[in-house]
């Protein structure tokens, strides 16, 4: 995908996006609703045509082909199963449209039914299936013609939590078994983090960061990515010096820390550093990186959140895993220190 843009009237839904999706990978487009991820997906499928730029598949320009001319299939958000056809007829639809012989279609349909654990349900009307079963039929239908790329438009959003978890594993398995490139669209960060080989985080029509789940979580590129994924502490500071990919930052709240530099080096002298709550720990006052006053202590079962009021007015959250022994926690109002581990802090681009 190269320098692709799509505007509706004066509204720019997708703004100059270039993405390289590799063969056989599980690629996820992650972002809040209205960020342009679905529009991007629809341009790959052919339901929308880009206003500018090209969609390339194996170095072939497919940007202006009709959806039925593209070796790309979609699993729709509401499944879009044909209500007047049976399960088998739904799965075989694509092959039938391609003019494949009946015997071949039957064989593929049987194989697909087995693949999605719906053996023997071929003659059922799709309207009688449960949500999870419909989801699997939609998957089988899109996989049956063996597309080069499978597009999944928030396919799990209609399922309840338990079913969603098991379908996540199922999807990962199907991708591995079939070796087809999956492009998955979701607004659910957890879904994206657990399933994807690589993730593109999108906001306002632009791609903010592309990388593996780990890269995106541990080293967010900018404020949006850091804020959108997981819980984060933002600390203001100034650049004190840098060496290689690391820099030292003088924090407004006091103390100097070492933090990872974003790609392309530190943007300016005034900058923001992010620290995940679980990458920090409480310490005695004066022994940590900086000090503060302990505010609310909130117990979450598996862990406890400590809200530390910093001297510059900000709040810093420290998350501590609860253990059986239950280390004594300081009282609200006490002076405490906060210690950051090596590599815990990351400097943002903006």
């Amino acid at each position: 995908m190269r320098a692709i843009s799509k505007s509706f009237g004066t509204f720019l839904a997708v703004d100059n996006v270039t993405l390289d999706i590799r063969p056989n990978e599980f690629f996820t487009l992650l972002g809040p609703s209205g960020c342009g991820k679905t529009t991007l997906l629809r341009m790959i499928a052919g339901f929308e045509l880009p206003t500018e730029g090209q969609v390339l598949l194996d170095d072939r320009d497919i940007s202006s082909l009709l959806p039925n001319q593209r070796p790309v299939n979609t699993v729709f958000q509401n499944y879009a199963l044909f209500p007047h056809l049976t399960v088998a007829e739904n799965i075989g639809f694509g092959l039938k449209m391609l003019g494949k012989p009946k015997a071949d279609i039957a064989a593929v349909v049987a194989r697909m039914l087995k693949l999605v654990h719906l053996d023997g349900r071929g003659d059922n009307p799709v309207t009688q299936l449960s949500g999870g079963q419909q989801q699997r039929v939609a998957l089988a239908r899109a996989l049956a013609p063996q597309p080069k790329v499978l597009l999944l438009d928030e396919p799990l959003s209609a399922l309840d939590l338990k079913l969603r978890k098991s379908m996540q594993i199922e999807l990962k398995r199907l991708q591995a078994e079939t070796g087809i490139t999956f492009v998955f669209v979701t607004h659910d960060q957890e879904e994206a983090l657990t399933m994807s080989d690589r993730i593109a985080v999108m906001s306002q029509g632009q791609v903010r960061q592309v990388g593996s789940a780990r890269e995106i979580y541990d080293r967010p590129a900018d404020r949006f990515v850091a804020d959108f994924i997981g819980e984060t502490n933002f600390l203001e500071g100034t650049l004190a010096g840098s060496e290689g990919s690391m820099a030292s930052v003088r924090l407004k709240a006091g103390g100097i820390i070492r933090a990872g530099l974003p790609e392309g080096g530190a943007p300016k002298a005034d900058l923001t550093v992010v620290v995940r709550p679980e990458h920090a720990e409480l310490a005695a006052a004066g022994s940590g990186t900086f000090d503060g006053t302990l505010g609310e202590v909130i117990y979450f079962g598996t862990d406890t959140h400590f809200h530390v009021r910093l001297d510059d007015g900000g709040t810093f959250i420290v998350r501590r895993q609860n253990t059986r022994s239950g280390a004594a926690a300081p009282e609200t109002g006490a002076r405490v220190g906060v210690r950051l581990g090596e590599g815990a802090a990351q400097i943002l681009k903006d």
Partner: peptide, 9 residues
């Protein structure tokens, strides 16, 4: 294809 996607659209 000679047409750009925008023209085709």
């Amino acid at each position: 294809m000679a047409l750009s996607a925008a023209q085709a659209g």
